[in-house]
């Protein structure tokens, strides 16, 4: 099949970017989208040009590295899939495809389609953990966790941290990412001791990173390759409301510092 590509090229974080047009005449429809880009890059290198930079690693939809907005949709046309899981058969012969990086103040462009998502790491760092050191621990069965709770926590924990939620949100909000982690840990008995301080610090960090607020568009849920539900945003709101208005200030202490 024949495909016309409009690819965002940007030489560095500060550089001005623009679209570059490439024509591919012989695209196999069983190719994955990223393999199509690999083939394009091989051609570019052979003709002495500068290949397109894009992130990918696992190429099976779990690491969250791949990150393009394809024809206006993060991770392209699939449902509950990542860019690396898209196959060229999702497009038609003669299609034009626009490829852009995830755009957000929190995700600076490194080069072309590659962005940095360290902002997510910093949100986790603010409280997305349970403070335990390595060493002997109570037996895993000492605290039974109802099946339903474990499953609900797992639903939230499935997040792959790709940032599609931010990229899809008209407000560039990171509420789904943050809400998923707050819910995952907040649901489990092990996560209770830090529940109050966790939600407060993570929400503060989320704002500091320059992400937008949530208008409950639900775009994030639709773009999420793991189909994480916005009900976890609701959960986080609830936790946050309780934590900041109801809990005594003392238990709200920062997690950082020893």
């Amino acid at each position: 099949m024949r495909i016309k590509l409009h690819i965002w090229r940007q030489n560095g974080p500060q550089a001005k970017g623009d679209f570059e047009v490439h024509q591919l005449d012989d695209v196999d429809e069983d190719m994955s989208f990223l393999e199509m880009l690999d083939v394009l890059n091989e051609e570019i290198i052979e003709s002495g040009g500068d290949p397109v930079t894009f992130d990918s690693d696992c190429r099976e939809g779990i690491c969250g590295a791949c990150s393009c907005v394809i024809n206006g949709r993060p991770h392209g046309p699939g449902h509950k899939s990542t860019t690396c899981q898209i196959r060229m058969r999702s497009f038609n012969d003669g299609d034009e495809i626009w490829i852009e990086p995830f755009r957000s103040r929190g995700f600076p462009v490194v080069k072309d389609l590659m962005v940095d998502r360290e902002a997510f790491d910093r949100i986790i760092r603010a409280g997305g953990f349970i403070s335990v050191h390595s060493g002997p621990k109570p037996d895993a069965n000492d605290i039974p966790i109802p099946h339903r709770i474990a499953e609900e926590a797992m639903d939230a924990a499935e997040c792959i941290g790709c940032g599609a939620c931010v990229a899809a949100c008209p407000n560039g909000s990171a509420m789904l990412f943050t809400g998923a982690k707050v819910s995952h840990l907040g649901l489990l008995p092990q996560g209770q001791p830090e529940r109050v301080s966790r939600v407060k610090s993570m929400v503060d960090q989320m704002d500091d990173e320059g992400f937008g607020a949530c208008t409950n568009y639900a775009e994030c849920q639709d773009a999420c390759p793991k189909g994480i539900s916005i009900r976890f945003i609701g959960r986080m709101n609830r936790d946050y409301l309780k934590a900041s208005l109801c809990e005594p200030e003392k238990v709200q202490g920062q997690l950082k510092g020893h």
Partner: peptide
């Protein structure tokens, strides 16, 4: 909030389609 949201995406998409948002939500 609107100011914060606008700032969160300094460079706009050339192509952007909303998928899930209701018209009502887009028109708030």
């Amino acid at each position: 909030l609107v100011i914060q949201n606008r700032r969160a995406r300094p460079v706009k998409y050339r192509k952007h389609r909303t998928q899930a948002a209701t018209i009502a939500a887009r028109l708030m």
